[in-house]
Nucleic acid binder design. Structure first.
Lengths: 338, 338
DNA sequence: TTGTAGGCGTTATCAA
DNA sequence: TTGATAACGCCTACAA
């Protein structure tokens, strides 16, 4: 593979490299016919601009970064798979590259990663999710004037383009539905307290209970790992209570998968003796047994929207609306009753 | 964020930038104490080398690419999620970056992507999977002398480091197990004919049938999309046959998830009236109902191994063994009988 | 052991 | 409308 540079095109056409460069970049101060000659030659010779050189000169990378909040071998949340594909599908449309890494388990390692990427100018901007109430990343990127967008916003008082799902309203509606189905002791299997979605969805749970005139029982709110294994464990534990719950509202589908499994192992008829529900609407939720009631959000589309917003910011063009509000769709399936 | 360059360190210490550069890179022709001064200053000033400049100078990117064989919104195979995390966990250990994109649906678009990445020198090497019997990517990268590694090898007569799972032996053993459980009409729900895994696993199916003295019936081999939805559809269709199968061997877990769902919808008791099995051992397979019998492969570790091999090739160091053979582990669970 | 200088491929600022 | 030229930040002969 002989790499063809702008200089070769110039020699080939007896032009200066400057002229070629301008023709390629579509500047107006070049004759129509010269431009065409250059374009044809470039096409024919298979010219593709060298990223590194362009980056060095323009002082930007045309790449965006996404750091997966994970790093454990078993990790497999369908959510991230769909999210990643959304990112991957959208980035090329803006002529951006997508750089990926995993954050590992420690916050310190996560910080190092972000700092390294920022300082070495690996990417022009970031996509964030799993936002925390007070999020170091938000503050750090803001301080350093690095563009970023996020799923959910943090409470650091910093404005940035984000997608906001109505977590609270969604879960409240879910709770009411489950209540209407005749379930009376609803538990909430959540995650780490500092996650934005945890707080928002838990608030929806409490709000829903209040609407239904049900008492809030702190024993019925547990903290799980964000995995099916975690959901399994906590769901079992809940059923061991002297006065166990008859419905399990899970922070996400992954946890709900584990909860379904646990309830089945305990010999319970799901949908009748116990209800289970998730959040996200990952495609696998349609294929559990029984199919999982969940709050469906368009993950793929959210990822695309985020990339679009970030691309606008990178181009210094105004993002129409800083916050895109989304209402999750309540997908009623058999896991919460026929 | 003021970006600190090698030059600033030089000025700060009254040294030439060359001296600083050498100290940083650990060359020997520099006095111990100067090196230390440089290292300290770099640390203190928060110096991180600029990627673009380094790339341009060294003519390599220190990045590897992985192009997801997907692009449909619903796409979510757990396999890729685990695979990606494996890649993401391993790349930083070799000081490599990971560049991701999605291939879209058309082969033409896939070709464009690879060509673009190669010509613009976005990455130094590639990770491939979903290898096809005769694979354009393998030939193209080989011709252009771009390092790559793959999961499975193609039949293009080109050597490259790869992980080779014993697909055939694995499925054959699975078939024998299912036969021992008393099932007699085994179907195979596969995928596109040109996929290496399809051919190898189908061969295992036939080999297993032969071992068990069962006849091969072409009606029982169907081609599905590689998704739960595809599995659902084909599984249903198979049961509509006048002489339907009582066991469904699926190309992967994703298809099996759909098959489980279909069998349940048809009111069959899975594990007794009909057996279902998958391949890959994604973590979700433990949480289906009933839990899915599958051939487990260490996806995360395979991804890591591939990155290691590629890193060695990029460093021009010999890869010990060009082919790492793996035997899948037969995970016997309830979907093929108690 | 250290400094000088040239260049990697592009883009942008000048003149011509 | 075009061409020469100087960066961008880093690396590495070669010279000192």
């Amino acid at each position: 593979m002989k790499k063809v540079t702008i200089r070769q095109i110039a020699e080939h056409l007896n032009l200066s490299i400057a002229a070629v460069s301008r023709a390629l970049d579509g500047y107006s101060d070049i004759s129509i016919e010269t431009r065409q000659r250059v374009l044809d030659a470039a096409q024919e010779m298979g010219y593709v601009p060298n990223r590194a050189a362009r980056q060095l000169r323009r002082q930007k990378t045309d790449a965006i970064g996404y750091i997966l909040p994970a790093g454990t071998p078993g990790f497999s949340e369908a959510f991230f798979s769909e999210f990643l594909v959304g990112l991957g599908d959208e980035t090329p449309r803006h002529r951006l590259d997508l750089l990926i890494s995993t954050a590992g388990s420690s916050l310190e390692r996560e910080k190092e990663l972000y700092r390294d990427w920022v300082r070495s100018q690996k990417v022009d901007g970031f996509i964030l999710n799993r936002i925390r109430l007070s999020d170091w990343r938000v503050r750090y990127l803001h301080e350093n004037q690095i563009p970023f967008v996020g799923m959910e916003n943090s409470l650091d008082g910093i404005e940035y383009p984000h997608v906001e799902v109505d977590n609270t309203g969604g879960v409240a509606a879910l709770v009411e539905h489950i209540h209407r189905q005749g379930f009376r002791r609803l538990a909430f299997i959540g995650g780490p307290q500092d996650l934005k979605i945890q707080v928002a969805r838990l608030a929806g749970y409490r709000q829903g209970l209040a609407h239904c005139g049900l008492d809030f029982d702190p024993d019925l709110v547990v903290e799980s790992e964000l995995s099916a294994a975690g959901g399994y464990q906590e769901a079992r534990r809940l059923r061991w209570l002297s006065n166990p719950p008859d419905a399990l509202i899970c922070l996400n589908d992954e946890i709900a998968f584990g909860a379904l499994h646990a309830m089945h192992d305990l010999g319970l008829v799901i949908g009748r003796e116990v209800a289970v529900a998730g959040f996200d609407g990952v495609s696998a939720s349609a294929h559990t047994r029984p199919p999982l009631t969940t709050l469906d959000i368009p993950i793929h589309q959210i990822a695309q929207t985020l990339v679009q917003a970030l691309a606008l910011r990178l181009a210094n063009r105004p993002v129409q609306q800083n916050c895109l509000a989304l209402t999750p769709r309540l997908l009623l399936r058999a896991s919460t009753g026929a």
